[in-house]
Design a binder for these strands. Structure first.
Lengths: 207, 207
DNA sequence: CCTAGTCTGGACTAGTCAGTCCAGCTTGCG
DNA sequence: CGCAAGCTGGACTGACTAGTCCAGACTAGG
């Protein structure tokens, strides 16, 4: 969650400033992308100066990595409590419904903040790619937990692979969000998630 | 395919230059993204000058739209002949296999050129979003044709919705590509496409 | 209260960016 | 052959970029 070189030695004031910077960055990146966000804008939005940015982060990439972490935290916070009840088909459907409703509320503007970031940065430096991997894995972990529980409880057949299912759901989610953003409609997302949940259901023991 | 203001009045030499510019742009954008591609780089790669860029395109966005079209053409050309034989589960699987193999050959570097472009530009001006929509629709159309044929031939149940299926497959594809790029592995793409094809298979009349 | 380390403001650099402009070249066509 | 229109080279502008640097303010701990 922290940026290597700042795990220690942080005053209360310093910590607050750092958070302010990261939050402002995450906001701006969500709206205009990583390349579309300048440090000057971050400074203005967080009421800080250049020296502060470079005091807490080694460079822009470093700041973007921190923003990716925060974005992941935010996403997961937004999806509580549904994210903790993914251990049944009904739970998965509730999660889906909330997600689709949220997209419609946002009028399908802007895709997945994490997905956009990944699309833009995953081909860049390995350190950033590593963070993005961990973010996706963290986000998918409640999904993985739920599916594993379903299998262990006998709701899913023993040959169901929770990891594969979770990864496929995540792919459907990301792709659905991208198309929804492009078509300015939640329909592609809804269809993708329905497909994914049907896929899970195809491993159900009771029909 | 052309850019509104240049549908006519194009010498052979002019047309060649224009193509050179678009091709260079598409190449660069595939590698470094839209924001990561400067007009100076386009000039160098296409051996042209600023005045030429602005002679054939009104601005960078306009050029990017043309590049999106070309990218779509390229994708579809690359996937022939598999793209014309998506009218059976076996055909879908052949398409899937070719796709996954191609990603592995590229060592899972770079995602879908069209997907990246959409992720970057879909929130921008409506004209560009419109082009991106048309590109996705064009790419999905062989899929839609194949699925429709399957239903009409009785391979799929009458309640199968080819449009919904095609859109869900496309979402799985895009999401799979994004995760594959992030994890530098074709596994997420393979799992996503397998799920999508299983989903089609769940509407099959014979099992 | 003192001082070392943390934190901050902001000027500055050197480079890059999209877009403009004009003068001169080439080519299709009458 | 001539001329109008298409085409090209490249200098130029003004805005914006990430990153550097230093002087000074704050603050925790002794």
């Amino acid at each position: 969650m922290t940026t290597a070189q700042h795990t220690s030695k942080l005053t209360a004031r310093g910590a607050a400033t750092r958070t302010r910077i990261v939050t402002a960055t995450a906001d701006l990146v969500r709206k205009h992308g990583a390349a579309g966000t300048s440090l000057d804008e971050v400074m203005a939005a967080s009421r800080t100066s250049k020296s502060q940015l470079y005091h807490y982060f080694t460079n822009k990439e470093d700041l973007l990595r921190a923003a990716a972490w925060q974005q992941t935290d935010r996403i997961m916070a937004t999806q509580r409590p549904e994210l903790d009840q993914l251990d049944s088909l009904a739970g998965l459907r509730r999660w889906r419904d909330k997600f689709v409703a949220a997209r419609d509320e946002a009028q399908n503007v802007g895709g997945c903040p994490l997905g956009s970031l990944a699309s833009e940065l995953a081909d860049g430096d390995p350190q950033t790619r590593d963070v993005l991997q961990k973010c996706f894995t963290a986000w998918a972990s409640p999904l993985l937990m739920g599916l594993t529980a379903m299998r262990d409880q006998g709701q899913l057949r023993p040959d169901a692979d929770p990891e594969a299912l979770a990864e496929a759901i995540m792919a459907a989610l990301q792709g659905g969000l991208l198309l929804s953003k492009t078509y300015r409609s939640s329909r592609p997302l809804a269809r993708a998630l329905d497909m994914a949940i049907d896929h899970v259901a195809s491993f159900a023991t009771v029909r």
